[in-house]
């Protein structure tokens, strides 16, 4: 246990290495194409437009209200999804490095979190621009989306430390998680409104991803996230951190055998 925590601390202390790797990832995306990470934003915006045109009709919603709700929700979901799926693949992705270098899991998770923080910033700009074009207005409350995103990043950081060694040992888990995330996307109010199930509040309240998404979505829609959203999201971070420590102490000496 102590060894795993020390290992984690070493990875955090070497945050500059994580940052160098993350910014190189972004730089390479810009090198390959003019749009760089905005390509991800472009696909996000395309999904958002396509879903909005159809589902605003299906749900008989006002188009501008609906696209603002959907855009902000997809923005947050994209961050959660990227962190969880990339978190699953983190050890496998770094297998060449891990065979030759001593790299704590927390260092790799740091790369992942920082890289996705930059990508989120790109997506945020893209989504806000598109929504402004449709006449959505933003209030200063929207700034609360930033600590919200940071909370999601913190969760993703610990989730990556917890998930990646398990996914390296059992190679069928990333596939399971992938399908699970797809199911969660439909179960979470992202393209459908939580008010649609107001008679069954547990449908949304029992879903931790709903609370995490609210942290980013609510401020962008002009109101602060509820205290319960923050509580659940922060408890998820604590849970993920605990899982990270447990998994690390069980696996950190053996990860190099699973590459």
């Amino acid at each position: 246990m102590l060894g795993a925590i020390v290992d984690m601390g070493v990875g955090i202390a070497r945050w500059r290495t994580s940052a160098a790797m993350a910014f190189q990832d972004i730089e390479l995306r810009y090198k390959r194409s003019l749009l760089g990470p905005f390509w991800i934003s472009a696909s996000l915006v395309a999904t958002m437009l396509a879903l909005a045109f159809v589902f605003a009709e299906v749900f008989r919603q006002d188009f501008v209200d609906y696209i603002a709700f959907l855009g902000a929700g997809l923005l947050a979901w994209q961050l959660v999804l990227a962190l969880v799926t990339e978190g699953c693949g983190a050890v496998i992705e770094h297998s060449a490095m891990l065979q030759n270098l001593r790299l704590p899991q927390s260092l790799i998770a740091g790369r992942l979190a920082l890289r996705n923080a930059v990508i989120f910033a790109h997506n945020l700009v893209a989504v806000i621009l598109v929504l402004l074009m449709f006449g959505v207005s933003f209030s200063p409350v929207a700034l609360w989306a930033l600590p919200g995103a940071m909370t999601i990043l913190l969760f993703g950081y610990f989730a990556a430390i917890a998930l990646s060694p398990i996914c390296a040992r059992f190679r069928d888990i990333p596939l399971v998680v992938q399908s699970l995330m797809q199911v969660i996307f439909f179960l979470t109010p992202i393209f459908w409104m939580p008010s649609a199930v107001s008679h069954r509040p547990m449908f949304t309240q029992a879903n931790p991803f709903y609370h995490m998404i609210e942290l980013v979505r609510a401020p962008l829609l002009g109101h602060e996230a509820l205290a319960i959203n923050w509580q659940v999201a922060l408890w998820c971070c604590v849970g993920a951190a605990f899982a990270a420590v447990v998994v690390s102490s069980l696996t950190y000496k053996r990860i190099s055998l699973w590459l």
Partner: peptide, 12 residues
Amino acid sequence: LISRGIGIHPEL
């Protein structure tokens, strides 16, 4: 120094 070339990116 176990292996050479770790972290080198050919595009940079």
